[in-house]
């Protein structure tokens, strides 16, 4: 019961942000690139539901497009992480105890040794800051996470009898990995993706905050925070609103991830019962 509730609440919160971000692709209350000094730093009103910032931009519109940026960066980073990490993990598990496994996992450790922020600084120092480079940095950071989860999930399955039966049928490790291993660990990967999603949102906010993420005029929650910093005493809502958005979305995704894990993982489900 309890797990169902966290899945429901987390899913609902995440869904609200996803829908806002999707809506921003077609319609926003006010154009986020149009500045209007006359309307700067207004409080909430019927024209500007959540007020305006120091350039007279509508906060609600900024938050909606910012959600779009954050989600796009996090999803693309998961794509990179899972797209490379899952095959690597499958490969490592298929060659467990041999040199291939060693090479992949030690390579993983090497990437793990650098936090996403350091990788981002490294990339931006070379190629300049942009949303794409932020995606790349967070994506690279995601690779070892997915590789580890995949390998750990795959190893016990390799010892099961139906894998032996597939070997007896003459199937290659590659085919066994695709037909038997991957479908049986997909739930693990989905749960991990949800968790990496929330970490990606946080990382994107952190990168934008230090100016390494999406560049102006593309709105982003992290940069909204950074810009509001100087006015935190006079206009606290400018910082509170994007901060609350980051917190709510991360909380929602974490709740959904935990709920999904309890729901999908039969081992945990037994304990819950």
């Amino acid at each position: 019961m309890k797990t169902q509730r966290s899945l429901f609440i987390g899913g609902a919160i995440s869904l609200v942000f996803l829908m806002l971000a999707a809506l921003s692709l077609f319609w926003v209350p006010h154009e986020v690139t149009s500045l209007s000094i006359a309307a700067r730093l207004q409080g909430p009103s019927t024209t500007y539901l959540l007020g305006t910032d120091q350039f007279g931009r509508d906060i609600l519109s900024l938050l909606m497009v910012g959600a779009q940026t954050s989600i796009a960066v996090a999803v693309a980073a998961i794509g990179i992480g899972a797209g490379i990490g899952v095959p690597l993990g499958l490969l490592a598990a298929a060659h467990h105890g041999r040199i291939g496994d060693e090479v992949i996992m030690r390579g993983n450790d090497l990437i793990f040794a650098f936090p996403a922020l350091v990788i981002a600084i490294l990339i931006t120092a070379t190629y300049g800051p942009s949303a794409f480079n932020a995606i790349l940095a967070i994506g690279i950071f995601n690779i070892p996470v997915f590789a580890r989860v995949t390998r750990a999930g795959a190893l016990p399955i390799w010892t099961l009898d139906y894998i032996m039966a597939a070997k007896v049928a003459g199937k290659s490790k590659f085919r066994i990995s695709l037909e038997h291993i991957l479908p049986n660990i997909l739930n693990l990967i989905i749960v991990q993706a949800t968790i990496q999603f929330s970490l990606g949102i946080l990382a994107e906010a952190a990168l934008s905050y230090v100016g390494l993420g999406a560049q102006p005029p593309t709105p982003s929650w992290g940069r909204m925070l950074a810009e509001a910093q100087t006015m935190i005493y006079s206009h606290p809502m400018l910082a509170v609103l994007p901060g609350a958005c980051i917190m709510a979305l991360v909380l929602g995704l974490n709740l959904a991830g935990d709920g999904l894990r309890d729901h999908l993982d039969p081992r945990l489900r037994q304990v819950v019962k």
Partner: peptide
């Protein structure tokens, strides 16, 4: 050996629960 050669011998395992891909 080739899959066609493998055809000549097959196996039945002990555990009736771990022997099949549950999906």
């Amino acid at each position: 050996m080739s899959p066609a050669d493998r055809r000549r011998i097959s196996i039945v395992f002990q555990d009736p629960y771990g022997s099949f891909n549950p999906r």
